[in-house]
Design a protein around this nucleic acid. Sequence first.
DNA 1: TAGTGGTCTAGACCACATG
DNA 2: ATGTGGTCTAGACCACTAC
Lengths: 254, 254
Amino acid sequence: MPAAAHPIDPSAEAGAAPAFSPLYQQIKALLTRSLQGGEWKPGEAIPSELELAARFKVSQGTVRKAIDELAAEGLLVRRQGKGTFVATHAEQHVKYRFLRLTPEEGGVPPVERRVLDCRRQRAPADVARALELKSGEAAVLVRRLLSAQGQPVVLDDIWLPGALFKGLSAERLSGWRGPMYEMFESEFGVRMIRAEEQIRAVAADAATAQWLMLETGAPLLSVERLSRTYGDKPVELRRGLYNTAHHYYRNELS
Amino acid sequence: MPAAAHPIDPSAEAGAAPAFSPLYQQIKALLTRSLQGGEWKPGEAIPSELELAARFKVSQGTVRKAIDELAAEGLLVRRQGKGTFVATHAEQHVKYRFLRLTPEEGGVPPVERRVLDCRRQRAPADVARALELKSGEAAVLVRRLLSAQGQPVVLDDIWLPGALFKGLSAERLSGWRGPMYEMFESEFGVRMIRAEEQIRAVAADAATAQWLMLETGAPLLSVERLSRTYGDKPVELRRGLYNTAHHYYRNELS
DNA sequence: TAGTGGTCTAGACCACATG
DNA sequence: ATGTGGTCTAGACCACTAC
């Protein structure tokens, strides 16, 4: 019983919980649950460290450590003198967090978007499995073409759970200015916080080649991304095909 | 002057320093310098937090925060009850830190190595620029073929600064068991701590196709990696061509 | 001037590893 | 039993932001 001096009863504020972990981990779990439950919305400030310390009956330092970890994970953003805020995809500095495609020297990133298709249909088996949908459950398929200076660079197929994205249409997508994840956040209340990608090199098939204005068989970067929201729940399966003739996917290892 | 109560004179233990940053940042810089200078070697334990606190005349908490950051960056490894150790590529759990190529379900990673070439020569202009060598300075070029179950998967060209890798030969490389970065560390005192990668899809040329037992023009993943050691000094330029028919490059975004 | 996050301290106690 | 890192507290002071 590590924190016997100040145990927090998990059943007090919520249901089953990690039970006996360090106090700051319990606080972190409680904060995560509040974020997940929408107590504080993206962009809003959460209560001050002292307020939270009073609410949870722990010291400021303990709250601080919990917030530190959530900030390190990108769920919260600290701003000295102002407060701590729920992270949002609308922020300038995280705009390229999930956009790893970088132009060669002197080029521009592929920011021109064209929605080719947006339809609701039953999720195919592989998509259903990835998104943890029941087989045959509704899904939304969005197909987009991203270009840089008129040159097509990316062909994206995006699968979303139908239940979470009611009312999503090609018109709404086309009308939206700014990152897609910002729209998901503000229009559908779905916030992506983490993603895993599988990257391969593939040959362009005839249809893809036509969209990207390449020869059939041209080498393309295939990026399959599974995005997750709070609680590691998968909410987006994205399959992108990138023409890397004038762009590259950048990555940092540490 | 944030830390006026306990300023550390940068000139006391070393030369010019970040001057007036938070105390723990100054401690961090001092620890980094000791790591860089080889005061503690990879795998060894550094002094305990209390010892360091005494040495630097600060509280344990301040040393702790400095070590926390270095541990987060992967330079140190904490082990409860034992001490804090200098990270090493020999550790099991970091063995795959720089190896992102993952087998498809049921497959095996490409661990069979064959050294095709190892020669010293003048660095070409682009390599010299990346490694920050003077033009015409000596470099070592290593070419390797990695296979999984007899099937070639990766063709690697590795450029290293000649001055740092005296005595590197195909024989020594072939004889080494374990990760290459472990060899660089223990045999040449060069420890990689960070790397940036540029990833593209390319078509196999005739020579590459032959090595990888593919058709000319087959799509390959091109991974160009610049690895850095302490002080962000570049020490390796690696150009890998991956056959992603049965493996994929995995990445996590957060 | 007041409130926020950021730094630093000193000391207590716990958990883990080792002799 | 001792020494290590890990957690938690209470309080002080600093730096930044806003009113």
